[in-house]
Nucleic acid binder design. Structure first.
Length: 1034
RNA sequence: GGGGAAGUAACUCAGUUGGUAGAGUGGGGAUCUUAUAAAUAUCUGGUCGGUGGUUCGAGUCCAUCCUUCCCUACCA
């Protein structure tokens, strides 16, 4: 191949789609894994998205991170297997189907039929899968979609059962009550995100009630906002650390928190005793309402840290049936659960039998008043959750539920978490760490339909047992089952019974399914159908080296993975976790359908390209900060980075193809290449080093920003721009070979460098530049530190700064760069350093000579300031006085002496100090009368006197520029030869004559003719109106 | 209410161990071009959220308050 393909003009959408097809056709993912056979594995776990709902932009960011890291690690030489997964169970799926079928509660579902309902759930899941596949392919997320793990597969469920069986066998699964928000009208519990939607401010009656102490005529004062829960009271709870008062008021004796005593009792009361909360523990009292009988010991004081003294009385009414804290307290003290309310929210006993609990509040207050148990009542406004579907106030209900006793091995969780590397670290240490410290038991069961069935069977005799595999189920089943057709979902498993080993009776399965987070948390095992398959090589697939998900997974997947693996294997299932935050709209608001500020990723892919979107998301802010999505930023990335990359390639290929040159056929040794090449190679290799460092701590943002900076500033705007003439040369000199070598090497390197982040453009570039199959099979470039020359980089920076200053100086006096000037002066101390770079400065600034000024005082005034960093640590508080002392010195002479290495004695605060060069910073300011610019002690002085010669040359340069512009507007080819006609005054004509050869060479003109013709296009040459016309040579 | 993160130019963000605030975008007027719907330099622009403290010196460390976002929670 002697020809470098031009980049296609197809729309990004079309181009990227073609490349994606190319990857599929050539099985690039499979090959990238196959060629790393035997290499160190880098284990990655894909968090399964819920296949319920369309993929959005927030999915694109997480997957961009995952993909970039996996591609990077692959290119680094690791073997990175990537198995897709789908989370297919759970309430969100059920709700979706309920809506679709217009079912509004569980009764409806059961009437519709569980078989049919679950069939619909299964279909619903797969209807979204297609969109996810499309998005995955389109964004270039390289993952194996053809062999995914799916949580609804029998194999998957079997692995989950195996895990549950382990928990059960070790006695870590128990049945208890879970308090959950419950809509009594709909007859169903609500998930927390549903609860969050329905908060409303309501007014309710709050009461302070008197609970009589059993062994004395004394009363505990207790506040509640829900009088209807009082019949279920079984305990009072106080804070063990708080001080409580026993007081007398109006001949009655009360207990109340010291802090709140005035708020509750007013000012007039007599303090009888101060008691610490802890000392009230187990003090018994009489049941407030004796409508419900307790079957265990109850009605005594308990302690709990959650009790505060901000509201109420500091003594909390505790009804385990209706509150989470209450329920937990109940468990700690083994209290009974009194439940006089049925599933429709009505009292089944008590005088208020048949009425909805909240409607009974007033009657209950009347009853309390009548019994003399009411201390006071008041109305209060507060937030209360309502059912978002029917507006019924929700009740917090204790429902029987199965738990995993996480609290038993909480310490192990914390310990394992401490070994995980979190990016950023605070998510693991604080957010997740704190959460683990306070972890409660995991409520495992759900009284629903579409999920992994709980594998527990119960007998009438009270015996329970669990089943750990299909085989075990078949062997123990009363019914005859077929290994090949067995289906583990409801309702089929509900019909399977097993024989009780205790009493011989028939056991029935507990009807619940399990929390779908348990499904996804089991994936390290279940994705490989462990331990039924792959158990021999499991250690190679566990634990993950890397996972990456949104911050919302702290309580979700991160947690469920950790709990399950800690139990099963004793270690954390992941070594490194990269966490990403949300995507907000450009004003920093959360995207939501109701606000209408969401963005459709597919539209962005089509319009700007997946590469640009991926690059932008990485570029705009670090993964772990909320990303404000702004389309303008996306456009900027597209033009700044992607079009620059394409243009550099286009430039290179244009000349390589025109000259029929292939840089792979020759090689100039690095040390023989020009300074400019060595400089850009040094920059490039420094970049490789930096990128490797940033990526080692998953800071993709820094890496991407540095790459973009290099491409824009160093490669395009300096190296290529400065090297243009080297490409034009007709002879194949070593210099020309060098520029081709260098450009080619860097372009190929860049294609690889960029590949993990922008897989499409890198592929296009790489395949245009090489004969290889794919950039994603290549090795990631590694810095050649021998080519890094930081001193050279410094020198070039200096030159670039000087050039900038020179331009600024020209600007001051309005002499454009095309007008040559005689000379500039720069600081003599740089002579050694940049002597040989002078031609570069001359050309950039269009000056005839660069002069190093030796005696600066001729042009400059000096001032001296302390170098705080050095002097501050030595002189301490005296630096301020030092500053004043320095100001009094004759700066010009002091600078010379210090530069020469002399020490100067200086009196500061009556003490003599030895002043050396390091203690001061010299600043220079231009003296009046010089055209110069100064910045950071760098300066350029411009000699602005223009001789006749310079002015003529200026005309010539101007003349050339105009002709070149006209060539362009006339659409001439680059190599077309032309003839120039012009008219104009004598001054111009003379200059043209003088520089005729130069003009001809620059413009590829064979002939220049001065004519008189009014039809010529009028141009302004530095104030001289001149007509110009071009014509192609025949 | 609890936990976490953040607050720097009009906007998006850098700012390493404390050393006297920086880039891009935007806006203004210029320049340059045989790669660029481009580029180059330049001008414009800041009580580093507020207040205290430590220090010779604080965007950076400490305390406290304010604001925004996220997670979580009917704490009676």
């Amino acid at each position: 191949m002697s020809n470098f393909k031009p980049l296609t003009d197809l729309s990004v959408a079309k181009k990227e789609s073609e490349i994606a097809d190319y990857w599929d056709d050539n099985e690039i993912l499979a090959k990238s894994i196959a060629i790393r056979d035997g290499k160190t594995p880098f284990v990655f776990y894909e968090g399964p998205p819920t296949a319920n709902g369309k993929p959005g932009i927030h999915h694109v960011i997480a997957r961009t991170l995952k993909d970039s890291v996996c591609r990077y690690k692959t290119m680094q030489g690791y073997q990175v297997k990537r198995k897709a997964g789908w989370d297919t169970h759970g309430l969100p799926v059920e709700i979706e189907v309920e809506k679709q079928l217009k079912l509004s509660n569980k009764q409806d579902i059961e009437a519709y039929g569980i078989t049919e309902f679950n069939q619909k759930c299964r279909e619903s899941v797969f209807s979204y899968e297609q969109q996810w596949r499309e998005m995955t392919k389109r964004m270039g997320y390289s993952i194996d979609l053809d062999h995914p793990y799916v949580t609804l597969d029998n194999d998957y469920i079997e692995s989950v059962w195996w895990i549950l069986d382990q928990f059960f066998k070790q006695g870590l699964i128990y049945e208890g009550h879970k308090i959950l928000p419950y809509c009594s009208r709909c007859g169903t519990g609500l998930a927390s995100h549903e609860v969050a939607q329905g908060y409303k401010v309501i007014k309710s009656n709050t009461v302070v009630v008197k609970f009589k102490r059993k062994d004395a005529e004394e009363y505990f004062l207790v506040w509640t906002t829900t009088p209807w829960t009082l019949p279920s009271n079984v305990a009072l709870t106080v804070n063990p650390q708080e001080v409580y008062l026993k007081v007398r008021q109006n001949e009655e004796i009360y207990y109340v928190s010291k802090t709140l005593s005035h708020k509750v009792l007013g000012e007039e009361f007599e303090v009888l005793e101060e008691i610490k909360g802890k000392d009230l523990e187990y003090v018994e009292y009489e049941q407030l309402m004796s409508f419900v009988k307790a079957d265990k010991k109850a009605f005594f004081v308990t302690v709990g840290d959650y009790v505060t003294t901000e509201d109420g009385t500091g003594i909390v009414h505790t009804a385990p049936a209706f509150g989470e804290d209450d329920y937990n307290t109940g468990r700690r003290y083994n209290l009974p659960v009194l439940q006089p309310v049925d599933e429709t929210g009505k009292f089944v006993t008590t005088p208020w039998q048949g009425s909805f609990v909240m409607d009974a509040d007033l009657d209950i207050i009347k009853w309390l008043h009548g019994e003399g148990k009411l201390f006071k009542k008041e109305k209060m406004e507060h937030n209360y959750p309502h059912c978002w579907r029917c507006q019924t106030p929700l009740l917090y209900y204790a429902k029987p539920s199965w738990y995993i006793e996480v609290t038993k091995f909480k310490d192990k969780l914390v310990e394992n978490n401490n070994r995980v590397e979190w990016y950023p670290d605070y998510v693991g240490e604080k957010r997740f760490g704190n959460w683990l410290e306070n972890a409660n038991d995991w409520a495992l069961s759900r009284s629903r339909y579409w999920g992994t069935p709980l594998n527990i069977w119960r007998c009438g005799c009270g015996h329970t047992t669990s089943i750990g595999s299909r085989k075990e189920l078949i062997e123990n089943a009363v019914e005859t089952l077929d290994q090949t057709t067995i289906e583990l979902h409801r309702p089929f498993v509900d019909d399977i019974h097993i024989k009780c080993t205790k009493c011989g009776a028939t056991m029935t399965r507990v009807k619940d399914v399990i929390d779908c987070w348990f499904d996804s948390g089991s994936m390290p095992f279940a994705q490989h159908h462990y331990p039924f398959e792959n158990s021999e090589n499991f250690d190679q697939l566990f634990p993950a080296d890397f996972i990456c998900e949104g911050i919302d997974q702290t309580r979700g997947w991160f947690y469920s993975l950790l709990v399950i693996s800690t139990f099963v294997k004793g270690v954390a299932p992941y070594k490194r976790v990269l966490v990403n935050d949300l995507i907000l709209d450009k004003d920093g608001h959360k995207m939501s359908k109701s606000k209408g500020n969401t963005v459709n990723p597919f539209e962005l892919f089509d319009q700007y390209g997946a590469d640009a979107l991926r690059w932008y998301l990485l570029y705009v802010s670090p993964a772990w900060t909320p990303t404000k999505f702004d389309i303008e930023g996306l456009k900027e990335v597209q033009s700044k980075f992607f079009s620059t990359m394409r243009n550099v390639y286009a430039f290179f290929s244009l000349y390589a193809n025109t000259d029929k040159l292939d840089p792979r056929t020759f090689f100039i040794n690095y040390q023989d290449r020009p300074e400019l090449d060595q400089w850009v190679l040094s920059k490039y290799n420094s970049l490789l080093k930096d990128v490797e460092m940033d990526l080692s701590v998953f800071d993709l943002t820094k890496a991407v920003r540095k790459i973009q900076e290099f491409v824009n500033e160093d490669l395009s705007n300096w190296y290529i721009r400065r090297s243009r003439r080297r490409f034009w040369g007709t002879e194949l000199t070593d210099d020309k070979k060098a520029v081709y070598n260098t450009t080619y090497e860097i372009l190929v390197g860049l294609a690889k460098l960029v590949a993990p982040f922008a897989p499409y453009i890198s592929e296009e570039l790489y395949r245009s530049l090489t004969d290889e199959l794919s950039v994603h099979l290549a090795d990631y470039p590694v810095a050649n530190t021998q080519l890094i020359d930081s001193e050279l980089e410094t020198r070039m920076d200096l030159v670039r700064n000087l050039v900038g200053l020179g331009r600024a100086a020209r600007e001051q006096v309005r002499i454009k760069v095309r007008q040559p000037v005689q000379q500039i002066l720069i600081d003599g101390k740089y002579e050694q350093l940049i002597d040989y770079m002078l031609p570069l400065i001359q050309e950039e600034l269009n000056v005839k000579a660069v002069v190093f000024a030796k005696d600066l005082s001729q042009y400059m005034n000096f001032s001296l300031k302390p170098n705080f960093k050095v002097a501050g640590s030595i002189f301490g508080p005296k630096v301020k006085s030092l500053g004043k002392a320095l100001a009094t010195l004759d700066a010009a002479s002091v600078v010379l002496r210090l530069e020469a290495g002399e020490t100067i004695a200086l009196e500061v605060e009556g003490e003599l100090l030895d002043l050396v060069k390091d203690y001061v910073i010299t600043t220079i300011v231009a003296k009046e009368g010089f055209t110069m610019t100064v910045e950071d002690n760098l300066f350029v002085i411009l000699d602005t006197t223009l001789t006749k010669e310079l002015i003529d040359e200026g005309y010539a340069r101007e003349y050339i520029s105009k002709v070149q512009q006209m060539r362009k507007t006339n659409d001439y080819e680059m190599m077309d030869r032309i003839k120039i006609y012009f008219d104009g005054d004598e001054e111009i004509a003379q200059a043209v004559k003088l520089y005729e050869d130069y003009i001809k060479k620059e413009t590829l003109a064979d002939d220049i003719e001065r004519i008189n013709d009014a039809s010529l296009e009028k141009q302004n040459l530095n104030g001289h109106e001149t007509g110009l016309k071009l014509e192609k040579s025949s």
